[in-house]
């Protein structure tokens, strides 16, 4: 047997992310919630003035308002609630999936102000005032996007549990691609490198994205 790849893998009852939040004390955590400029997260940026932010949150449920798939929503959630749990449990938005709960599989991926983010690694209160797009927001009503159509046509899904996150990664790739520049298979693989799929859909995902990028479908873009 080889050495364990990672000695930090914590046994149950050991160190967990939420346990850590509890352990460091509510004040520290709340500080993090209020002062959005302090985040080292590359996707994070301040959108609410400190003056308008609540002085203190929790520990009970507190309302948070943000834009979800183009609509303004409000949910009352505890400060410790992740964005993923708020979406799934409080906002009936179950497209993003809970799979690893620690940012290693991307099944919970959403766009926050246009950037792909693991919603299991963000607190719901951190998206106050921001724009969140889930897989449900990629289609316009019942009309699927070209990328979603291509996924179906190429059978880029089997069980479908990774598909929501895959689509968010691919949509983000297509949106940030310089106009008119062709994509390579390697670029698509890089874009979905964080999306784990157990059924083995990667080759068909790549084919679907390349087809959309080539503009050979009825409507290019994500």
């Amino acid at each position: 047997m080889s050495e364990p790849a990672n000695r930090r893998g914590a046994p149950k009852g050991g160190l967990t992310r939420r346990g850590l939040f509890r352990g460091v004390g509510t004040a520290t955590l709340l500080g993090g919630c209020v002062d959005r400029t302090s985040t080292t997260d590359p996707g994070g940026h301040a959108v609410v003035d400190d003056a308008t932010a609540p002085a203190e949150l929790g520990p009970d449920r507190v309302p948070v308002r943000f834009t979800l798939n183009g609509e303004s929503v409000e949910a009352a959630v505890e400060p410790r609630t992740t964005l993923l749990d708020a979406l799934r449990l409080d906002l009936d938005t179950t497209g993003p999936k809970l799979v690893c709960d620690r940012g290693s599989c991307s099944a919970c991926l959403v766009l926050v102000d246009g950037l792909p983010r693991n919603s299991c690694m963000m607190l719901a209160h951190d998206v106050a005032g921001r724009e969140v797009t889930t897989v449900e927001g990629l289609s316009k009503g019942d009309e699927l996007s070209a990328l979603q159509h291509a996924f179906v046509r190429h059978d880029a899904l089997q069980c479908g549990f990774c598909t929501s996150g895959m689509l968010i990664s691919c949509a983000a790739l297509l949106r940030r691609r310089p106009k008119g520049e062709p994509l390579t298979a390697t670029q698509v693989q890089d874009a979905i490198a964080g999306n784990l799929c157990r059924c083995g859909t990667y080759p068909h995902v790549v084919a679907a994205v390349l087809e959309v990028a080539s503009g050979k479908t009825e409507r290019a873009g994500a």
Partner: peptide, 26 residues
Amino acid sequence: RVLDGDLGRMLNPNLESYKILGARDV
């Protein structure tokens, strides 16, 4: 799966140290 012989517990019960194939490895 890696079990610790001293503790008798799994050391990689997650998806970052229990590695499954990603898109770049296919």
